[in-house]
């Protein structure tokens, strides 16, 4: 049984693409959350979008429709053990 919860991150070549997809998804009422890109997904920091796996098909269509370029989509386990630390 798969007990681990996952998050799906969309990564972009630059922030303009990320912001554009964020706007289009908002307009289409598709849940998405701007997030700093986790290290596990890429060694470069910068914006990525967390989306729901059920929406990936619709999101794919929007990406195509608006010609938004993305780097990749990464699935990462949700960290449930995060403890506050001073950064």
């Amino acid at each position: 049984m798969d007990q681990i919860a996952y998050r799906w991150y969309i990564l972009f070549p630059n922030h303009h693409q990320g912001l554009q997809l964020n706007r289009e998804l908002r307009k289409a009422n598709i849940r998405n959350q701007i997030s700093p890109t986790p290290r596990e997904a890429s060694s470069c920091c910068g914006i990525s979008l967390i989306v729901e796996p059920d929406d990936l098909d619709r999101i794919g269509k929007i990406i195509e429709e608006y010609g938004i370029s993305i780097d990749k989509i990464v699935k990462l386990p949700v960290k449930t053990d995060w403890q506050y630390r001073g950064i």
Binding site: Q33, I34, S35, P36, T37, C45, G46, I47, I87
Partner: peptide, 30 residues
């Protein structure tokens, strides 16, 4: 390296955040 986890733990764990926070989440991401 530590920023994404910290931001996730402190901010993205909240429920029902206003859409207007998108801009600020973007600023922190970059």
């Amino acid at each position: 390296e530590v920023l994404p986890d910290a931001f996730g733990g402190v901010f993205l764990s909240q429920q029902n955040r206003p859409a207007g926070m998108d801009f600020y989440d973007f600023v922190v991401s970059e």
